[in-house]
Write a protein that binds this DNA or RNA. Structure first.
Lengths: 219, 219
DNA sequence: TTTTGTGAACTAGTTCACAGCT
DNA sequence: AGCTGTGAACTAGTTCACAAAA
């Protein structure tokens, strides 16, 4: 069974653990490619991050037979495949909701631009901010114009960087604007309807998990 | 078996899934407490986030018998227990490495202060920044002074907000300064020795996972 | 010989279901 | 009657181990 992208079963759900690892592999391949490496084995890749080689082979084999037995994976070929699987060949446009400290920092975060994301707009309710722009030049719009600008710019992803109080309300507006993927940085649980993917990064939870670790160690 | 904090087996490792949920429970209890609610059942808690009630009971029961059969959990009592388990009763001091956009935004992030963390210092190598401070007043020090200040201030957690290139080097300095818990925002894999807890938040991976979702939906 | 792709075995995490308190 | 705490059943995720291909 050889296909550009195989899907073992159309309805089978790929685990988020797997897709997150694909991103990590891609980054590693970019580094290897830049260093002039042509082929890489699952074994070698596994050593880089503390991962099992079978894990990597399974993750990749899920989407197709990208490897060559006895050789490994061609770095450039696999890079292309991963880009395609992750939907990175088209430049995805991103809007950031909330032009506070965090929103502005995220708007200019170089890591986002790197792999083909394009931060096209910031949105805020504070009228003094509207019309301004981030240091790197991302314009700030009134959140009232979200729907119009999202449609015009074909925004694919919204990043939520507003205070907890307004987070759910902003998510509702994002959903109403037809955006189907949301990265949330506000703490607490948010609701999004079926068909909209909501991924949360909870900074407080992360810190508290470290606090827990320290508390245990000290016993 | 009733103990303030029971540990089923001393050497048993608590899953990170569990500890992350404890943070989420705590936040929910804070809200309930503020709303004047006295007791809450696992069932009610489970409805808030889309979680199973047995999951919540297991998570809590792992650390002690905090509930009352027929009643549920006393909000204030459970709050205290969770704070103790997560090590939040003492104010943990945090240093942020890298006074760029992201570092400065994190330094002033209100969510960190909320649950008792104290951001006491920013560190950078750029001499022009040293001596300045963040908008909220967190002072910026030279990274050369990390070891001295970490010891003096008893810094418990380091947050890495420097570019990828210097991330591993900065982690090494943090480890050398005797800090045992690190929250890393730089992309890529970092190494920390045994006994140092390294937790990474990878913004690029998060965005790419959304991109993957969008790519699948469109098929 | 080397290294993939993958079924089988294993390990970890979640949910069920119910005995046992209050 | 109501709700916890928990063994048992189940589900998901990882690792092993080996046949098959280059």
């Amino acid at each position: 069974m050889k296909l550009a992208i195989k899907r073992k079963q159309l309805n089978e759900q790929v685990s988020e653990f797997t897709t997150n690892r694909l991103s990590v592999y891609l980054r590693c391949l970019n580094a290897l490619g830049a260093a002039g490496v042509r082929t890489v084995s699952s074994q070698t890749l596994a050593q880089q991050f503390h991962l099992n080689a079978a894990q990597i082979r399974k993750d990749l084999a899920y989407f197709g037979e990208f490897g060559v037995r006895g050789v490994g994976y061609y770095v450039n070929g696999l890079k292309r495949h991963l880009r395609q699987i992750l939907g990175l060949e088209r430049k995805l446009k991103v809007a950031i909701l909330g032009a506070g400290n965090l929103g502005l920092a995220l708007a200019d975060y170089p890591g986002f631009r790197q792999e083909g994301f394009q931060i096209v707009a910031l949105f805020d309710t504070v009228t003094a901010k509207v019309g301004q722009q981030s240091r790197a030049g991302v314009p700030i719009f009134d959140i009232k114009d979200l729907r119009r600008i999202a449609a015009r710019e074909k925004i694919g992803i919204a990043v939520i960087a507003v205070p907890v109080e307004s987070a759910q309300h902003v998510v509702n507006q994002v959903v109403a604007a037809g955006i189907k993927a949301i990265l949330n940085f506000s703490p607490g649980t948010l609701r999004a309807p079926e068909g909209v993917k909501l991924k949360s990064v909870d900074l407080t939870v992360s810190l508290e998990s470290l606090s827990f670790y320290l508390a245990r160690e000290e016993e």
